[in-house]
Structure formats: C-alpha cells, structure tokens
C-alpha cells in the first residue's frame, strides 16, 4: 500500500463540497476511485442504485445551466434520490428575498443535499453555513466549480492512468473562470504541472502564486503538453473590453490543429462546455474523436456527481445536528 492509498482509505473528511482548495490528494483520489466504479455501472443498461433512497436532493440554481443541472439530476436519480429542481432568477432575488432567507426556507424542508450554483463568489459557502444538509458547490461566481475539476481529472486519469507528472495547459479566460481555479487546485495537488495561457487581460493578478506558469503565446505554452483544456469565453467579454474581437481572439488564442501541433502528438483536448465553436476552439477539432474527449467529460460528470452525492450522504450527517 502506498502512502496515497492509505490516505484515500480514510475517505472524505468534510461535510460539504465547496471547493477543491483545501482537499487532500487522498480525498480527491477517494472520490475519483468511487466515481470510476460508477462509470462502469452507468454503462450497464437499467443500472439504478438505491444508496440515496429516501433522501432529497434540491438543485438550487441562481444562474442558468442546463448541462450541470441535468448531470446532477441524473446522478441523484440513478442513486434513487428524490430530486427537486429550483431555478431562481437572480434578478428577482435581488429585489426581495435574500440568499440567507432562501437558505433558511429550504432548510426548513430538510433536504439532505443542496446542489447550488450562484453568480457570486463565496455565495455557496455563505449558504452552507445556514443549512443542516450537505452542500455541493455547482459553481460560485469566479471562485470554484469542484465537480467540474473532478470530472476533468477522472477523464484524464482513465486515459492516462495517473495525473502526477502530466503537463496540463489551461487556455482562455482564466480571470473569470471557476473551472480554471478548481482545476489548478486539483491538478497541482495531484502532482501535475499546470500552465495557463491567455492574453494578459484575461489572467488574474498574481496567478503564479497558485503554482502555475503563465504564457501569452499558445505555441510556447502548449509545447510538450499532455492535456489541453480550453475555457469558454463569455460573449460579453469578446467585444473590446477584454479582447478586441472574436476574430483576433481565435487567431491568437483559439485552438486549431496548427497550434495543437506544439503539444505532444497524443495530447488530449478538453472543454467544459458549452463550446463557442470558432471562438476558442476550431469546430472540426472539437469533434475529432482521436483528440477531443469533450463528450467523455460529460459522461464522467454524471459518475463524479454520483460519487460526491454518495460520499456526502453516507455516515453521520449534518441533518443530525452537526
């Protein structure tokens, strides 16, 4: 047994999953191992488990999302949970009920798990302090999106066997990306080397303090990389405020076959979706099954979320007054 195995045998030591920052390598491995098993189970038709039978999961989304919400919903249902979806237009929240009121109201209904997405950094943590059940952060502002990083890690691990020692490039709007932050924490914790590639306007202050190398040039940054993660560029940031135009962005920072040549021959291309084809990634490349694992990421998403739901609901829980 290696040290890592011993650590992972201890399981997951938190009540909530609010972020990757602060998780130990053993905890990440534990979640990934469990998720790995769910990948196989999910591939069997009619596979449905009952570890969450009788439990209630509320998907509370203050920001539009179809993919993540569906993925969580499916994960919870496959484990036998009752699922309630609540989409709250943030604009109406602003007018009246505060986030904490919403949390208290939902808490009074005794959900076992709250899956929360919110446009403000730190909002999910704030909410988690006011509820008894477990909280999973499904994305808070520009802060963290832990299940995305876990599903990315699972995708890589299944293709490459191990995360340690890999050279990973994360490209695009790092400044506003919770996916980038969670991935940086996870990958560096697991021993991968991380580069971030973006125009300086899309790199946050002192990003190097997070243990990454930064590049302004795709070819330089992608050199000898094993993994290329592309990020979505929000449309409102394309027109002059952070980058002058879509065509200029694609020309210098969009991933196409020519730029990808700098990476290793078997480098994997990833994207958290939804993609802006022709903005950050060449359309044909995105569909190339030899290079792109984008669809696989979606599959891993369900398995990872099943693992997180199971881990947070097994053993003594917050509902018992912790």
């Amino acid at each position: 047994m290696t040290a890592l195995d011993i650590a992972s045998s201890l399981g997951y030591g938190h009540r909530h999953l609010l972020g990757i920052e602060g998780l130990k390598a053993g905890e990440i491995t534990y979640l990934l191992n469990l998720a790995d098993r769910y990948v196989e189970l999910n591939r069997l038709s009619g596979a449905k488990r009952d570890v969450l039978a009788g439990l209630t999961v509320i998907n509370l989304f203050f920001e539009n999302s179809t993919r993540t919400r569906t993925s969580f919903e499916l994960a919870a249902k496959r484990l036998g949970a009752n699922v309630v979806n609540m989409s709250v237009a943030w604009s109406s929240i602003k007018k009246g009920e505060t986030l904490i009121d919403t949390a208290m109201t939902l808490n009074a209904m005794h959900p076992d798990v709250l899956v929360v997405r919110h446009p403000d950094s730190g909002a999910v943590k704030l909410l988690s302090e006011k509820v008894n059940g477990a909280v999973i952060n499904a994305g808070d502002g520009s802060h963290e999106h832990p299940t995305q990083a876990l599903l990315d890690a699972l995708t890589i691990r299944r293709r490459r066997g191990d995360l340690a020692g890999l050279q990973v490039a994360i490209c695009g709007d790092i400044a506003h990306s919770r996916v980038a932050r969670s991935n940086i924490h996870l990958l560096t914790t697991m021993g991968a080397r991380v580069r971030v590639i973006a125009p300086p306007t899309l790199l946050p202050a002192q990003i190097d303090c997070m243990g990454v190398e930064s590049f302004y040039d795709m070819r330089e940054g992608l050199k000898d990389c094993d993994i290329v993660m592309m990020l979505r560029l929000q449309s409102e940031r394309m027109q002059g405020s952070y980058v002058p135009s879509v065509r200029e962005y694609f020309r210098f920072f969009g991933l196409d076959r020519e730029k990808l040549q700098a990476a290793k021959d078997d480098a994997l291309v990833m994207h958290p979706g939804p993609m802006n084809r022709g903005v950050e990634i060449d359309s044909e490349l995105a569909d190339d099954l030899h290079r792109s694992v984008i669809r696989e990421q979606v599959e891993m998403g369900v398995a990872v979320r099943m693992a997180c739901l199971e881990v947070l609901t097994s053993g003594p829980r917050g509902g018992l007054g912790q």
Binding site: E21, S121, G122, D140, E144, P204, A205, C209, M210
Partner: peptide, 15 residues
C-alpha cells in the same frame, strides 16, 4: 484588494 487572495477567492480586485 487586487492580488493573490482576490484571485483565489474569485473576487474582483481594486488594485
């Protein structure tokens, strides 16, 4: 304040 902590927390920074 704009800096490492703002970057980690995903908050906008005032440099």
């Amino acid at each position: 304040n704009g800096g490492e902590l703002a970057t980690r927390l995903g908050l906008s920074g005032s440099p």
